[in-house]
């Protein structure tokens, strides 16, 4: 219980620190329009000549983009790997090592604080765009599916924290990982389905993606929230849960093996 209080405190600190950057909040909200505008213009042109594409109607497609844009906006753990990498390289990672909390737990609590802060603003932005673009928003009606989608979203966010933490501590071995992180960002935007729904890809490709965790981070929760792919919900939770366990194992092994390489003076 006392342990939890420490993490709650970290979370509170990060919620408060977001208030110092109010303009960032407003602009983050405004720039969520870019993805919706992309979908509106691209699919608007496509749906002028047909009624459905890969079983999506125009408003179904835009509902998907509203939810996936909202979820991808909430996923803010990308900075964790950059922060860890920079700290290891300049020798100030010691600041985290001397804290009386687990370093991974610290970053997870930080992510919870930031996500909680942005949650209502991103929700507000999503509602504004639904209104502005006059989208007939489709939403799942089954409480079970919604529950699964919510749980999958939380697990997905946690997995991304784990992944970024893992990539960050790889700096202990590889020293320079910034190029790799940028490539990762490009690929993640494709495989999480934030550019286009993965349902547009050939069945074989989707089959392979189902084995990867990214399918369950943004794409499947977005589909579940918009009332599709309900039959994949439970399997999705199991697969993502297994990936979280696997990633935790990778983190523990990597940390134990390479922690001793850190000498606190920078590389």
């Amino acid at each position: 219980m006392r342990e939890m209080r420490k993490y709650r405190e970290i979370m509170h600190v990060y919620i408060k620190s977001q208030l110092a950057w109010r303009a960032d909040v407003v602009f983050n909200m405004l720039f969520t329009v870019a993805k919706i505008l992309f979908a509106w213009l691209l699919w608007g042109m496509v749906f002028r000549e047909r009624n459905t594409v890969a079983d999506f109607t125009f408003h179904g497609m835009l509902s998907y983009y509203i939810v996936s844009s909202f979820l991808s906006q909430l996923e803010m753990s990308g900075g964790i790997s950059g922060e860890i990498s920079a700290r290891i390289r300049n020798g100030t990672f010691s600041n985290y090592m001397v804290m009386p909390v687990s370093i991974e737990g610290y970053f997870a609590a930080m992510e919870v604080g930031v996500v909680l802060f942005y949650l209502c603003f991103d929700l507000l932005a999503a509602m504004v765009w639904i209104f502005v673009f006059r989208i007939q928003f489709l939403f799942a009606r089954s409480a079970v599916v919604l529950g699964c989608a919510l749980l999958m979203t939380v697990l997905g966010l946690f997995f991304m924290v784990q992944l970024n933490y893992f990539l960050g501590i790889l700096t202990l071995k590889y020293e320079e990982i910034s190029t790799f992180l940028m490539i990762k960002d490009n690929l993640v935007s494709l495989v999480t389905g934030t550019i286009v729904p993965l349902a547009l890809f050939p069945e074989g490709v989707v089959g392979v993606m189902r084995l990867l965790p990214f399918y369950y981070v943004t794409y499947l929760p977005s589909m579940l929230f918009t009332g599709r792919c309900a039959e994949e919900a439970v399997r999705g939770l199991v697969v993502l849960g297994l990936w979280c366990v696997l990633m935790q194992w990778a983190i523990v092994v990597t940390w134990r093996k390479y922690r001793v390489k850190y000498d606190g003076v920078g590389v």
């Binding site: 496509v46 490539i183 050939p202």
Partner: peptide, 19 residues
């Protein structure tokens, strides 16, 4: 990698639409 991703995206779209 950025432009390869873009190619993959439009390949997926054009697998479902002609123009």
């Amino acid at each position: 990698s950025l432009f390869l991703v873009q190619l993959a995206v439009f390949d997926a779209i054009y697998a479902n639409v002609d123009r």
